[in-house]
Amino acid sequence: MANSVRMRAKATGNVVEVKALVQHPMDTGQAKDKNGNLIPEYFIQTVEAKVNGTTMLNAQWSVAVSKNPYLAFQYTGQKGDKVELTCVDNKGETFTGKTSVR
């Protein structure tokens, strides 16, 4: 699952904007496949962002977040900060990404 999170972080002055794209189907549990069977819920439940090892953001998501989720947030920081993102879905799979602030 190494490449499932794509991230970019850019500093403008002391404001850092982090953008992330996660590859995940985010199945709602309400859609049906072509045989009419319900596709079970399969979605990212929690997202944690750490900056230089300190938790900055803790998010909880529902099935209503779109497929291949996009997330952006801003914090007060600087170039060179190490940003790490960890997503955990309802099957317990973990998706991680990291980047340095440019």
Binding site: T54, M56, Q60, S62, A64, V65, S66, Y70, Q74
Partner: peptide
């Protein structure tokens, strides 16, 4: 749909895409 809990240093900004 989503909840974002902020730590110290976060700016009041969150962006995502929803169904």
């Amino acid at each position: 749909a989503a909840e974002f809990n902020f730590g110290a240093g976060m700016r009041g900004y969150a962006s995502t895409r929803l169904k």
